[in-house]
């Protein structure tokens, strides 16, 4: 990824898109852990990559892994985007203080790891199982909606999703250990 980064600084569009395709999903997930608002996260990611391209000549020739740069930049954009209505000021007072750099980089590594494991788990599913899981969870559709979409009975949809989750169980178990550390 370091070569990709150096090529982006030179203005190589292909490398830029490679970075986008590699990190979009994990960054999206990370953004959602900061604020669960899909539109806000999408808009923030758009701003992140626009700014990245507009400043590509002036990006630091970083020695650390460029992904840390992306994650922390995204976090800043999200926080910048969120205006605080008066009623929420009190909530903010109870929010934990800014984490240390070490804590942040551990969190980032964990998001990447989770992303890879989830992809692996999803890849083990049949096409149908994967489609149903995406409808049910990524798009938050109900069983009834999926049944209608796919011309199937609600019972079938339920069974396919249940079997898919069971099949993902191995990877899920490892995932949990990580998520639990992460959310502490």
């Amino acid at each position: 990824m370091k070569d990709t980064w150096l090529n982006i600084i030179k203005g190589d569009r292909t490398s830029f898109l490679k970075l986008y395709d590699t990190f979009y999903t994990p960054l999206f997930h990370y953004g959602m852990t900061i604020r669960r608002d899909r539109e806000l996260v999408k808009e923030s990611l758009h701003i992140l990559f626009c700014e990245l391209w507009e400043r590509h000549e002036r990006l630091p020739q970083t020695k650390v892994d460029p992904k840390f740069y992306l994650f922390t930049w995204l976090k800043r954009i999200i926080i910048r985007q969120v205006e605080i209505p008066h009623s929420q000021i009190e909530d903010l007072l109870h929010e934990p203080a800014e984490e240390s750099i070490e804590a942040q980089s551990i969190a980032i590594e964990q998001v990447m790891d989770m992303h890879e494991r989830l992809q692996r788990a999803l890849n083990k599913l049949t096409k149908k199982q994967r489609r149903y899981i995406q409808w049910r969870f990524f798009e938050e559709r109900s069983y009834e909606e999926i049944a209608e979409l796919d011309n199937a009975s609600v019972r079938t949809v339920y069974n396919v999703i249940y079997e898919a989750l069971k099949r993902m169980r191995g990877d899920i178990a490892i995932l949990h250990a990580i998520i639990l550390i992460f959310s502490k």
Partner: peptide, 22 residues
């Protein structure tokens, strides 16, 4: 935790629309 992980994923459509916008 697993539910939260699953719903925090972008859909294929969202990804394509955002990619074109960028």
């Amino acid at each position: 935790q697993m539910v939260l992980l699953l719903v925090d994923q972008p859909t294929e459509d969202e990804f394509q629309i955002e990619r074109t916008r960028l």
